[in-house]
């Protein structure tokens, strides 16, 4: 039982990180139907920028409290990622609006390669470790270990998602976003500057990516110029699982994927009588995805009417 609780805790923490990154994919997709393959790289840049700032502040010997240092690190990473997303949209995606659907996909791959290599030039090839700034306390929950960092990550992710929901459903910007995602041209006719809305979607997604980057690197204690790729891929999978273009779907998909991975790695051996082991963890996750999509071709919460081809 304690093993099961522990796997649940593992899965939920992992899932909330996936969910946060998945939101970035799904927002952009919901509005212009583009898979922003380079979104994972924003997470990487966010992690490395905040890490650099944190190290700088620690080295400066100002005697700042650790929590403040981390907050300042994130605060520095957010505008950098937002600016990067802004430039990315302007240079690589906007000129291709109306181009064949796969053209922006290739530029996205190009952007991803460029960002990785620039990051490699700036930060070098080594893995960075996250300094043990935060004093992690471990609690005992029914025999399972739960750290305050995990609680904080889940809470912060939840808070950010709630904030995003508020923006989308309660503000004029959100109204414009929803209108644009319904129909870009008609929204334009209603006086919405669709370019501004699209930029907003990119930039908000980038801010979330910056936070997610810092979260991932502090949770796993590691950051590297290549870290964005795998994370982006998983988050993209999560977004599709939940129904891409749907904010609630991204959260649900992220959470589910985290749980599937944790429980899959934990119990796949028992389920198959020891024939398959944790090496099939990702296979398990993809089978669940394919199974879901066969039953619901637009994902769990996706609306098949808004499906694009």
């Amino acid at each position: 039982m304690d093993t099961f609780i522990q796997q649940l805790i593992n899965g939920i923490t992992l899932g909330s990180v996936y969910a946060l990154v998945a939101l970035g994919y799904t927002m952009v997709y919901g509005i212009i139907g583009l898979i922003n393959f380079a979104h994972g790289e924003l997470v990487m840049v966010g992690a490395l920028v905040s890490l650099s700032v944190i190290k700088l502040l620690m080295g400066a010997g100002l005697g700042l409290p650790p929590v403040l240092i981390v907050v300042l690190g994130v605060a520095a990473a957010i505008p950098v990622c937002m600016l990067l997303a802004f430039v990315m949209e302007r240079v690589a995606y906007r000129p291709l609006r109306g181009a064949p659907r796969l053209a922006p996909l290739i530029t996205a791959i190009g952007v991803s390669i460029v960002l990785q290599n620039i990051a490699m030039m700036i930060w070098g090839r080594s893995y960075f470790s996250f300094p043990p700034l935060l004093n992690v306390t471990t609690y005992d929950v029914g025999g399972a270990a739960l750290t305050d960092l995990q609680v904080f990550i889940v809470l912060l992710a939840g808070l950010l998602m709630a904030g995003l929901m508020w923006i989308v459903h309660r503000t004029r910007l959100g109204l414009a976003m929803r209108a644009t995602s319904q129909n870009l041209q008609v929204a334009g006719l209603m006086g919405i500057d669709s370019n501004r809305i699209i930029v907003a979607a990119f930039v908000i997604g980038a801010a979330l990516a910056a936070v997610a980057g810092t979260m991932v690197s502090s949770y796993y204690g590691i950051a590297h110029y290549y870290m964005g790729f795998m994370l982006g891929l998983k988050a993209f999978t999560a977004a599709v699982l939940g129904g891409i273009g749907n904010l609630g779907g991204a959260m649900l998909g992220g959470m589910l994927l985290g749980l599937i991975e944790a429980l899959g790695a934990g119990y796949i051996g028992d389920l198959t009588g020891g024939i398959l082991g944790s090496n099939y963890q990702d296979v398990f996750a993809f089978f669940v995805l394919i199974g879901v999509l066969i039953v619901r071709p637009a994902g769990l919460l996706g609306n098949s009417n808004t499906e694009r081809s």
Binding site: V240, F286, L293, R308, S309
Partner: peptide, 20 residues
């Protein structure tokens, strides 16, 4: 199994297939 899927949903399923 992917006949019903179109566009990006097909993309992610085929991606998963490749990884599997």
């Amino acid at each position: 199994p992917t006949l019903k899927l179109r566009g990006d949903y097909l993309a992610i399923v085929t991606l998963g297939f490749g990884e599997i």
